[in-house]
Structures are given as C-alpha cells and as structure tokens.
Design a protein around this nucleic acid. Structure first.
Length: 465
DNA sequence: TCTGGGGTCCTCCCACTA
DNA sequence: TCTGTAGTGGGAGGACCC
C-alpha cells in the first residue's frame, strides 16, 4: 500500500516588481504611471506600475505602443543590479518558510511547504505570514497562489493579483477562495472547476503558436482542451507537447519543486539602434564574449559549446554553434570561436546583404569550474604562469593560422592567472577598468553589464565603431 | 511604427560509429 | 571489405517563459 501526501505548493509572484522597486527608490513616483524599459525606438516594456496598466500598458509591449497608450508615463531605464539585491532579500524570506524553493525569475518562485505545516501552520497561514514578511523586509507586495501542484499555484497567484486602479475588482474564480488580500487558494477537489474556466493561453506552455494551432480545433478554454481526445491533441501539437498539455488540462501535474536548478547556458546579446552592414567594423564578438566570460566567472562555470545568434533586419534569425574539445570560460577563446562562426563566408555575405539587427553569443554544455577537471582547458585548471600580451597579437587564440581548425588550437598558456587578474582588477576598479584591446580603439565603447538597462538597443555610440 | 534580453526545452535532421 | 541499421550526439531552429 502506498501512502500519498497531498502537496502544498505556493507560487509567489512579486507585484510589478521592477516598477515597485523604482517607486521605493524614488517616492515621487508613488501613484504615477511608471514604466521600466527601453524608451528608445526599439525598446520594450519590462515592467510597469499598476497606474500604467490602467492605460493598457503591459510588459513585453513595444515602447512605441506603450507611449501611445500612456503618453504621460514616467520612463525608467531600469537597474538590474538593484533588482537582484531586492530579489535576494525576497528569497531570504522564502527560505525562512521552507528550504524547497525553486526560483523561476528574480520576482517569482515556487515553494513546497508540505513539510512546514507542523512548524508554521496551514498553507493559508504560511502564505499570509510570508506575504507580510516580504512587505516588512523589502517594502514590496506580492501575490501568492496555494494549490496541490505547481501549475495551479501559478494560476492562483495570477488570480490573486490586484486589479489596476479604476478597473473593477477581479471576481474570484470557481473552485478557489481568496483567503486574504493577495492570497488565493485553489480548493482541493475543485481543481478542475478552477482550471477549466481559464482561457487556453493561461496554460503554462501555450504561447501564440500553440494557440493558433488549437484555434483550428475551436479550443478556447482549458476545459475545451480537456474535453478533446488525447489522440486529437497529439495530432495537433505533437507527441511530447500534446501529452504534456493534455495532462495539464486534466490538472495532472506532479512536477516537483526543484531547488537549485543549475544554470544551463550563459549568453549576451545586443540589438543595435540601426541595422548594421559594416561587419568588419562591428568588433562586437569580443565585447559579447567578454560579457559572457565575465558572467561565467561570476557563476564559476565553464562551457564547451559556443553559439552565435544573428537577427537580420527582416527579423529572420539564425544560430550557428560549435563545440570545442575542452571547456572554457575565457573571453578570448569564446570570441575566437564566435569569430570563426561569423567569418564563415556565406554568413558574412548574408550579414552584409541583409543588415544585422541583433548579434548575440552564448555558451552552453556548462559544468561547474573545477581546477581538478581534466576536461577543462588545462591552463585554466592549473593556472600556469607565462607572460602574455593583454589581448594582443601574440595571443595564440587570435592567430589566423588556426582558423582552419581552431577547435584544436593550443589554449592560452596563462589563462587562469589571466582571468584571475582581470577579475581582481574589475573587482577593485569596476567592470570597465579592463577590456579587450580591440575595444580600446572605440572611444567610449562599453559592453552592457548586469545593472545596465536591458530593454532596448545599444546607444549608437556603442553599436558604431 | 512595431517586436528586448536572458534563458529552457523540444524536435528534426544529419553525421558518425558500432 | 562492404552494406544496412540503430543509437547517439551535435547543430539549427522553433516555441515558450519572465
């Protein structure tokens, strides 16, 4: 006989997180429509206050559209570093409740509180106390959904969100109860009543493409999908996605709350303020690689698959990837492989012909950095001390003689010491104190860092050499 | 007039290998 | 030695999330 425990899952979602942090920093913004994001021509809305939402502004909306809807909004560029600090405080509150916390983003997480009841009371009490703790600790409000599975908890927190000012208060959906302000519980045994009333796009994993496919079958709500035979769903959405979404539509979701999910890739990409054709003058691969390398050092990971992403002026997007024999976190090595990918003749032709809107570099096939690991570039692992020119021509990685088979080229003999030195200088003097020599020729050129605005194109001076 | 940045996961195709 | 096949891993791209 098996004994099954009914799980208590919380989904906690901060209310208008970035915008609320900005209001906390600047009390003059209280009660005003605030939009965090790139206000430039190609920017988007990252977050907005509830006052801005009353005008119809939503996150991920283009800045152009947001300005049209709310011309009087106050635009804030955003400060990712600051949001990270607040996020840490919020997560400390989460960990006071349970060690089983799965962070989804800076502003939301799943908490499995099944084992916390004896110590902290019912899930309702835990959620109410947690919400108060977050408010007391950070000054920020959050919404909490309580359910027996992750999907329903997430839908619950969404339903618990406040309505924008001037809009009618939300009606509590069937199968749920509002236990307190900002806390909604999906009633055990009434999950289907709650779930089936939702529009189909509310299901986690249903985006525009899947919605379009389901539209052909007349599927508008989760209930419609649940009523469709499995083989029809599989025919419409494919085997994996079909089975998965059909299960979710029956409120079957036994995915555990997974704390400490390791990072799978680290990347950096930038949209230019104008489309670029002067490929030779971009020199962006070094900047991108430097930014990626920086973050890999912070995360203490190395990786061996380098992916280049190009978005053309017509929004066509391609990716090109290459795996190298040994893992690396060296910006020079990453740039070298990225350059190989860019320099493939047909790609250069394409870039020049079509114009490039966005360029990005990422590293995957990650593993934790260990000096003992033989699959890590040996010089990173051992830190052999050999004098090299900083980013100079003598760097074996950038010699064109290796271009035919760069994956096999000898690694930088000073990489570990070199990376450590860069890190030390940056910690002491700031991120911009050291940069690749190829960037030094570009006056005022600096790569975007964590903490800089992320929601718009680089300034023209950055994109243009 | 549009449509960011940083990720994850999945599918399909192809090359390689046993 | 050649051929067919199945498994596997890499690469490309799509879809989705916040």
């Amino acid at each position: 006989m098996t004994v099954s425990t009914v799980r208590s899952i919380l989904h906690v979602d901060m209310d208008a997180f970035y915008a609320s942090v900005e209001v906390l920093q600047n009390p003059e913004l209280v009660g005003k429509p605030v939009i965090v994001g790139g206000s430039a021509e190609r920017g988007v809305v990252a977050s907005c206050s509830y006052e801005a939402r009353a005008y119809g502004v939503r996150s991920a909306m283009s800045s152009f559209q947001a300005k049209r809807l709310c011309p009087d909004a106050i635009w804030v560029a955003g400060n990712h570093g600051l949001y990270g600090e607040y996020s840490e405080k919020v997560h400390e509150c989460f960990h006071r409740v349970t060690p089983i916390v799965e962070g989804i983003a800076l502003d939301e997480a799943f908490l499995d509180v099944t084992g916390s009841h004896r110590l902290l009371g019912t899930a309702d009490n835990i959620a109410i106390d947690l919400r108060a703790d977050v408010l007391r600790t950070t000054g920020l409000r959050c919404s909490v959904g309580i359910a027996t599975c992750k999907m329903l908890a997430k839908l619950g927190s969404e339903a618990a969100k406040p309505a924008p000012p001037g809009r009618p208060a939300k009606q509590t959906k069937p199968g749920s109860v509002m236990v307190a302000e900002g806390v909604l519980r999906v009633l055990a045994g009434s999950e289907l009543a709650f779930l089936h009333a939702h529009p189909i796009e509310a299901l986690w994993g249903v985006g525009p493409a899947t919605k379009t496919r389901l539209d052909r079958y007349g599927i508008q709500t989760v209930g419609d999908l649940a009523a469709l035979p499995l083989d029809s769903v599989v025919r419409a959405l494919g085997n994996s996605n079909g089975h998965h979404l059909h299960q979710l539509a029956q409120a079957i979701d036994d995915r555990p709350v997974q704390p400490d999910r390791g990072v799978k890739s680290v990347g950096h990409e930038e949209t230019f303020s104008t489309d670029r054709r002067d490929i030779a003058g971009l020199a962006v691969d070094a900047r991108m690689a430097d930014a990626v390398s920086n973050r890999m050092r912070e995360a203490k990971v190395v990786g061996r698959t380098i992916t280049l992403k190009i978005k053309f002026a017509d929004f066509r997007q391609i990716t090109r990837a290459k795996s190298i024999p040994t893992s690396t976190m060296s910006g020079i090595r990453i740039a070298e492989v990225a350059r190989q990918l860019v320099n493939e003749a047909e790609l250069v032709d394409l870039m020049q012909a079509s114009g490039v809107r966005l360029l990005g570099v990422s590293v995957s096939s990650l593993q934790p950095f260990s000096s003992e690991d033989k699959t890590v570039e040996p010089e990173i692992a051992t830190g052999a001390e050999v004098q090299l020119d900083l980013f100079g021509e003598s760097d074996p990685h950038v010699k064109p003689t290796h271009s035919a088979n760069n994956a096999q080229s000898p690694p930088n003999p000073n990489d570990a010491a070199f990376q450590a030195a860069i890190q030390a200088v940056r910690e002491k003097f700031g991120d911009h104190a050291v940069a690749p020599a190829s960037l030094a020729t570009t006056a005022g050129l600096r790569v975007k860092r964590r903490g800089d605005t992320q929601w718009g194109p680089s300034a023209p001076s950055v994109a243009n050499d």
